[in-house]
């Protein structure tokens, strides 16, 4: 087996919530010896997965489930509380975010941000935007070389050279999306993190951008981590899908297995809620609020309370991720039981 491009093990991000003001804390320390419990928010909690070279992994889940926190850790914009991130076999999780900017790996992991309209600097032309990572990360100084690389990236994404001198406000939504993608692929990344790349685009443009992304992956042999709400889009572009719920992996497996035979009740609810889906057993409506990510009870399933099938065991023991099919795993007691019975 080839070594994975990215290997994430037991990754956690826990935020300490500051609840007491400084004077209160000071007085407390002065007058009492009681342990001071500070609530902790478990944004990402023990997540493990890997991405093979050239593979495309979809990451879905509702807002607040830790998708973005996970992404900011992977691209080293935020620190890691626990766990390791290995990129091409090298441990990059321990490098502080401020130093990672100077790491040679920084150019190999690039991000395409959500909103093409807002993620471009309005005062930079398309050329400046695409040239920025070449200057900063690859430390290119030769103007001719930079121009050649920018031209090459623009050509790959189908951006006419005549548009390179334009400012963002002079470009259409689809063209801005292309500039964003060109900026990300210019330094020759191995891993492209795509954070909802098409959610701000019209359907008429979305199809073109999706096809472009699919072609680029094959041409350049990049791996994708594709973060999206739109399950129909994930299905088109991804080899495997990872579903997150409240900081934990609920289910991970090959795209077809996830869509055809979802094992986790949350995945089933998610699939049935997608507009256009016609679920066989009717739409699963999730009632109730998600559990709080602040100091979660380690012995209760994160989905308990909203889960239509939750029962006694789910409240006593949190389910671990376990295999339910070929390279398909789900964190649910019921999924495992179904497997054993079959």
């Amino acid at each position: 087996m080839t070594t994975p491009l990215l290997e994430v093990e037991d990754l956690s991000k826990i935020y300490q919530l500051e609840t007491r003001s400084k004077p209160v804390r000071f007085l407390r320390e002065w007058f009492t010896t009681l342990p001071d419990h500070q609530p902790r928010l478990h944004a990402v909690d023990g997540v493990s997965f890997s991405i093979a070279p050239g593979e495309s992994l979809g990451l879905v889940g509702e807002s607040g489930c830790g998708k973005s926190t996970l992404v900011t850790m992977l691209v080293r914009l935020s620190t890691v509380t626990a766990g390791t991130i290995r990129f091409e076999g090298r441990d990059i999780g321990a490098i502080p975010p401020a130093e990672f900017g100077r790491s040679p790996d920084r150019a190999k992991i690039q991000v395409v941000f959500q909103d093409p309209h807002e993620s471009l600097n309005p005062r930079d032309t398309a050329f400046d935007t695409i040239a920025e990572p070449l200057k900063r990360l690859l430390r290119l100084t030769d103007a001719r070389e930079i121009a050649a690389r920018v031209g090459e990236a623009a050509e790959r994404v189908g951006l006419p050279a005549a548009l390179l001198s334009r400012y963002p406000h002079q470009l259409s939504g689809g063209q801005k999306a292309r500039v964003n993608i060109a900026r990300a692929i210019a330094p020759g990344p191995r891993l492209l993190v795509l954070d909802e790349p098409t959610s701000a685009l019209d359907v008429s443009v979305q199809a073109v951008i999706l096809k472009l992304l699919d072609r680029l992956r094959r041409e350049l042999g990049m791996s994708y981590l594709f973060v999206s709400h739109d399950l129909n889009v994930v299905r088109l572009l991804c080899d495997r899908v990872m579903v997150m719920y409240l900081g934990k992996v609920a289910e991970i497996g090959p795209t077809e297995a996830i869509f055809e035979a979802p094992q986790h009740p949350y995945t089933r609810a998610l699939l049935s809620a997608a507009p256009g889906a016609e679920p066989a057993g009717g739409r699963i409506r999730l009632d109730g609020e998600p559990r709080s990510p602040v100091d979660p009870d380690p012995n209760v399933c994160r989905f308990f309370g909203r889960c239509p099938q939750g029962h006694g065991l789910c409240e006593r023991q949190a389910p671990a991720l376990r295999g339910v099919g070929p390279s398909h795993a789900a964190a649910c007691h019921l999924a495992a039981a179904a497997e054993a019975a079959a």
Partner: peptide
């Protein structure tokens, strides 16, 4: 063409048509 451009279950990437022009 709007309908054809919309990703849907069972539709491959090749089957999705873009709408030319602006």
């Amino acid at each position: 063409s709007l309908i054809a451009a919309t990703p849907a279950a069972g539709r491959t990437l090749d089957a999705i048509g873009a709408i030319p022009g602006n």
